[in-house]
Design a protein around this nucleic acid. Structure first.
Length: 321
RNA sequence: GGACGGGUGGGUGAGUGGCUAAAACCAGCAGACUGUAAAUCUGCCGCUCCUUGCGGGCUACGGAGGUUCGAAUCCUCCCCCGUCCA
């Protein structure tokens, strides 16, 4: 049996300094950064997704960035497949994977796995969406209740995306979702995750979010969006739904004032950070640090913790996570 | 000085005698989430007490009085704000 290789995951809300800490730690621990972020996989959407710029990468290889063109669709399952390949490569080369995790679902999909469920079907979804449009999301909830009462009970009647996904699985798999989920999910093999969490005080985080939005604009965010529009990326492309991109597009097309757009972006980012915090709080086995990842004291604490735990990766990984 | 309009909970703002601790929205807080997740959805949101209940008490609609069984809602005076006339 192969021994478990350590894998470091840095979780935390947006703007908490994950990228900075990740690159710094990777430099000190013979590691490479593996982004775990649903937005940074898109090419050309750089500034607003806070994708680490070349100088911020400290010469460390970064993986799982710039994988897709704006019009492509990406999923948690696809993330897992590609990230596993990256991890195998790092293991073969004896490098420590340092995951910078903004998207909690992707980390979970990677580490805990996804059930063996059918992938999304655009045709089926189009039909379900049309029915929801006509008769309301509650109608889909009633359908799900017939297909799988237990699953329906766990999804709010108005939660359209989750209803669609659940019905999709029932129909495509030919059996209830709860049964599909009940048959387990394949954990990531061969790695023992160590999780570090960044949790700065809320007020400071919000302040930093506000400043970062300003800084992104000063770095040419508007020009980036203008170029994307000029290049013909449609407003319906997924990355144009990301925080900031829709607002700045609206501004450039004369539908929103700049100041109004900035405030909307800051607001949306704060709410996003809050949702991330809710998700990460229940992430098991996280060592929490109460500050920003670019704070030298926090970085030092992180390194000290890792040096202690990397010395005995099997012991650390052997514990129930 | 005069004529109107207006002052409501953190914000915007509805409410013209009881069903109103006060709509709605926003902000905020808490939570859910196994393939679009920077998505989507849920709950709470004056203070307080407990036997946590469609429970009790207190405070609240600029201020002070008054009418009424009962007032954010009606009356009187006062203080602010906006517009217009002098």
């Amino acid at each position: 049996m192969t021994s478990l290789a350590p894998l470091l995951a840095i979780v935390g809300p947006t703007a908490s300094g994950k990228s900075a800490l990740g690159a710094w730690l990777a430099g000190r621990l013979e590691g490479e950064v593996v982004a775990c972020d649903s937005t940074q996989v898109y090419r050309h959407f750089d500034i607003g997704t806070a994708k680490p710029a070349p100088d911020e990468r400290r010469g460390i290889p970064h993986h799982m960035l710039d994988l897709l063109e704006p019009e492509e669709v990406f999923t948690a399952g696809e993330y897992r497949r590609r990230a596993e390949a990256v991890l195998e490569d790092l293991r073969a080369r004896g490098r420590l994977p340092v995951l910078t995790v903004g998207t909690g679902l992707y980390l979970r999909a990677l580490v805990e796995g996804l059930s063996d469920a059918p992938t999304r079907s655009e045709e089926l979804r189009a039909r379900l969406d049309a029915r929801a449009d006509k008769r309301g999301p509650e109608h889909l909830h009633r359908i799900l209740a017939r297909l799988d009462p237990a699953a329906a009970k766990k999804i709010a009647p108005r939660d359209l995306p989750k209803l669609v996904r659940a019905i999709e699985i029932c129909l495509l798999a030919g059996r209830p979702v709860s049964e599909v989920y009940g048959s387990g999910r394949p954990r990531l093999a061969g790695f023992a995750p160590i999780k570090l969490g960044l949790m700065p005080p809320r007020a400071e985080l919000y302040l930093r979010i506000e400043r970062r939005v300003q800084a992104m604009l000063e770095c040419g965010w508007l020009a980036e969006v203008r170029a994307l529009i000029a290049r013909g990326v449609p407003a319906t492309a997924k990355p144009f739904q990301f925080i900031g991109y829709s607002e700045l597009r609206a501004h450039l097309e004369g539908r929103m004032g700049l100041e109004e757009a900035i405030q909307a972006i800051q607001q949306a980012t704060r709410r996003y950070a809050k949702r991330q915090i809710t998700w990460f709080r229940k992430e098991p086995g996280v060592e929490w640090l109460a500050g920003f990842g670019d704070d030298p004291a926090i970085a030092a604490a992180a390194l000290a913790y890792l040096e202690k735990h990397l010395a005995a990766p099997r012991a650390a990984g052997g514990k129930a996570v």
